[in-house]
Amino acid sequence: MVSTYIPKTLEEALIIRKETGARPLSGGTDLMVQYRRGIGVTPKFPWPIMIVSNLKELIGINETPDGSLCIGSATTSSEIAASPLVPWHVREASSRMGAISLRNLATIGGNIGNASPKGDLPATLILLDASVVLASVEGERTVLLDDFIYGAKKTLLQDDEIITKIIIPKPARPFTYRWYRKIGTRRANAITKLSLSAAITIDEKGVITDFRASSGAAGPKIARNKALEATLIGKNVEDIPSLLPSFLADYDKIISPHAMPEYRRTSTKRMLEYFLTEVSKRPSGEIIE
């Protein structure tokens, strides 16, 4: 039996993490399944574990003085989906994860720490330029989520650190149009086969001032490329149809699907094409269906 710790405070958790290297387990929806051993048998982990799901310091959603949103790492998908403070993309992704019973357990910190390219929350958080706050007994550091997850199941987390908070900055201007699509085998309890999150901001003159897209499950990490996004910024939204062919050809180069590449490339580009074509028609609703 591996050592298991149930710290009562974050301070205690950080000391345990430093001294034993115990890995945090929150909702258990990934780890308890990954290390299960069969009917009626207790999961067995290759490293010490500490259960952090009840640490009050890690739970909650609040706005910071500069207008950013701060979400505690042990906040569940249900809590995130129900909070009006949370940006639309993240609420959408939260409300479509698994089923109700899973969303009541699964946490945002776990979804990030697990670092699966199919993770639903990282795809939308990376779109919004979110950062993670990593704490250790030495102090805190903040890392851009897009840098933190650098490959499939690979993060910059150090052996003495715990993910404590997720910070989502407020965009300079509210997005004009937003899009989120998750493709799975069924409506409930489906692992994402492919996802695309996108947002665009258009000024009074029809000029694109912000455009972002992040692509989930289409490569070893969530794909986002700011240089490519920037090629549309400053252009008039009416010119999108003429810019699309070369934009989509370039987008194809930033995704690297490991399996079913043809399907993933085609579907990703079709979603992007649909979103951009729809917004060029300037529909009245903010959410592109």
Binding site: T4, I6, G28, N54, I100, N104
Partner: peptide, 20 residues
């Protein structure tokens, strides 16, 4: 499924150490 603090959860994914 059971209710934990009034919310439905699947008990196969929850370690008893999280239930205190």
């Amino acid at each position: 499924s059971v209710l934990k603090d009034g919310k439905i959860i699947t008990t196969c994914m929850v370690p008893i150490g999280a239930v205190g």
